[in-house]
Structure formats: C-alpha cells, structure tokens
C-alpha cells in the first residue's frame, strides 16, 4: 500500500515537472507573439512592465485572475463554467505520452499516437459547449464554425498520421523518433513531405489560429466562442490554445523532424555539438515551429470560411490518400534510406 502511495507521488511529481515548464512556455509564447508581431509591423510590442517587457505575461496573468467572471443571465451556468476546463483538460492530458528523450517520457504506451489524436479531437467540446452555453449568437456562430472546421481538418490530420505510422510501423512516438535516426535525410520530412505540410497546416487549423481563425474572426463575429468570457475563464481558453500550439509544434518535430535527434548526426560536425542534450534540440526545433505559427499570423490574411472547408475536404484529404499510396509503394520497394 505504501509503495503504491510513493508511486502516485512520483507520478504527480513528474506531471508537475512537465506542466510547470509548459505553463511558463505558454506565458512566454504570448509574450513572444506580441513582441514578434510587433517587430514585424514595425512596432515595439510590450516594453513597459519589467526590463524590455519581460514581466508582461505575469502582469497579464495577475490581471486576468483578479477580474470578475461575468456569467450572462440567460446562459447555462454550469456548462458555461465547465467549457474552459473541458478545453484545457485534453490540451494538458495529451502531454502525458509525449517523449522528451529516449527515456524521458511519463507514460510510454504503445498507442501513444492514437491517444494524442483522440485527445486533440476531444478539445473541440470546450469550444462547442462554450458557444452554446453562452446563449449568445456570436458565440454560437463561432462554435459552429469551429466545430465544423476541426472535424474536417481532423480527417486530413489523421491521414497524415497514418502515413507516419506506415513509415515507422509503430504507433509509439518514441519508436517513431528512433526510426528516424541516421542523419537529417533519414528524418521523415523528406519521404513524407506532402504529409508534413498537410499535417502542419491542419494543425494550424485545428488550433483555430490565423489564417484559419474564423471561429473568432473579430471583424465578423466579434470574438467567436469566447465573446462572453472574462477573467480567469477567458485565461483558461487562452492557455489551452497556446498549450495546443506548443503541442502541435512538438508533435511535428517528433514525427517529421527527428525529435531529440541532432541535425548533425552522421556528419563530421556531430562531435562539435555533442554537448547539446537531446532535449535541447527538441526544444529548439519546437520553438522554430511555434515561431511559424506566429509568423503565419502576422503574414496571411484570414481565409474565407467556404475556402477553408474546400481546402480541407477537396485538397488535403485527396492529397493525403494519394500520398499514402505512394508511401505504400516506397515501403514495398524498400526505398533506402528510410524503408530499407
């Protein structure tokens, strides 16, 4: 009994060890976003709180926590308050199976890829329930748009993952990374290039980020599903969105860019970078993809809603199916260096 107790304590400690840096990462991703978009638009971004604005995210968090949570009168009280939690839960729970290194993983389960796909698809409930429970037309329209969008892009995303699992012949994220060891050319971005592009774009669409952020399109439906939310409840939605951005970036790295493997593996420069731990490479690559999310937001105008649906159903899904056939041919042909 006591041993089990220690086990549980140990697991909780590990969870804290994953979540605490994640939440700090989320806070500073918002800072990075405001700063970067500021520079891209020839502004300075936040620069008043702390040196160079470093304390801005903390000030924002304190402000949001101390604000009143306004509950609309004719709203559905319980669901209204439950919705942020439902969107937060899956966004954090997915991190349980994410490997940060060969032995750095909380739950090393066989079907971790499926688990992540299942949990990211559950996140949409937070948005739908928020939109419905607010009893507001803008919120409801935003929720409907977002639900349709997420369900559509999930199919393309799932097919892209099928390509990865075909290539690695494993559903375990750790195995998928280990299969890519060798050199940069062994990573799956090359044989699965279309799937990688589709996965990442679908990831942007799944997290409702610009240019696919019609769910909260300010110019049309004010702020979409979270128009009625304030204070801490709004902060939780915000947190979930950014946690998902980091998750999608990390998954892209794990599945297509060799995870914690060094990009100099197999070249003469390998020894020069031997001091860099695998986690460092993983975080550096993840930071690059998170940066892409911000770059997209500053660069592209918002898609029109019917064009989003067309892109998902008529372009991405057929393309992924075709590329799955190509991957099958490559596997049968034992194409080196990936499938030999």
């Amino acid at each position: 009994m006591l041993e089990m107790f220690y086990d549980v304590i140990w697991i909780v400690l590990k969870i804290a060890l994953i979540l605490a840096p994640l939440l700090v990462g989320v806070a500073y991703l918002t800072y990075a976003e405001r700063k970067l978009i500021g520079y891209m638009q020839v502004r300075l971004g936040p620069n008043r709180v702390g040196p160079k604005g470093w304390l801005q995210p903390i000030a924002d968090a304190v402000k949001l926590v101390f604000k009143e949570i306004v509950i609309p009168t004719r709203s559905n009280r319980y669901l209204f308050l439950l919705a942020p939690l439902i969107s937060m839960g899956p966004a954090l729970a997915a991190w349980a199976v994410v490997p940060f290194g060969e032995h750095l993983v909380l739950a090393d389960i066989n079907a971790s890829l499926l688990y992540i796909l299942a949990l990211t698809s559950v996140g949409v409930y937070g948005i739908i329930i928020a939109g419905w429970a607010s009893n507001s037309k803008y919120a409801f329209l935003g929720a409907m748009r977002s639900a349709a969008q997420i369900v559509s892009y999930e199919i393309a995303m799932g097919f892209a993952l099928v390509g990865v699992l075909m290539a690695a012949s494993s559903l375990n994220l750790k195995e998928i990374v280990l299969q890519q060891s060798g050199s940069v050319l062994h990573w799956y971005w090359l044989p699965l290039l279309p799937l990688f592009v589709i996965y990442f774009i679908s990831g942007v669409a799944e997290t409702n980020r610009a240019p696919f952020d019609v769910a909260e399109g300010e110019s049309e439906i004010v702020a979409g599903f979270h128009v009625e939310y304030s204070g801490a409840a709004f902060a939780i939605f915000f947190l979930a969105e950014y946690a998902n951005i980091i998750l999608i970036s990390l998954l892209t790295v794990l599945m297509f860019f060799g995870g914690w493997l060094s990009p100099f593996q197999g070249t003469f420069m390998e020894d020069w970078f031997a001091w860099m731990p695998g986690l460092g490479w993983l975080l550096a690559k993840t930071a690059f993809f998170a940066f892409l999310f911000l770059w997209f937001r500053a660069t592209f105008p918002r898609y029109r809603y019917d064009q989003i649906m067309r892109l998902g159903w008529k372009v991405f899904i057929p393309l992924t199916i075709i590329w799955l056939l190509v991957v099958g041919v490559m596997i049968v042909a034992k194409l080196p260096p990936w499938f030999a």
Binding site: I109, N110, A111, L114, Y115, L117, A118, L119, S121, V122, V124, Y125, I128, W132, F140, M144, A147, A148, I150, V151, E154
Partner: peptide, 26 residues
C-alpha cells in the same frame, strides 16, 4: 483493451458525438 478504448474516444467522442451535438444544438 487500450486500442478499443482509444478508438472509442477518437471515433465516437471525437467525431460522431460532435456532429450529433452540432445537430441537436441547431
């Protein structure tokens, strides 16, 4: 039966019930 469990969440919770809710809310 972890595969069945995850697939139940993926297919029924993640896709079928979302469309269900979609219709019921309308």
């Amino acid at each position: 039966a972890e595969f069945l469990g995850i697939v139940l969440v993926l297919v029924y919770v993640g896709a079928v019930m979302v469309l269900f809710l979609f219709v019921v809310m309308m």
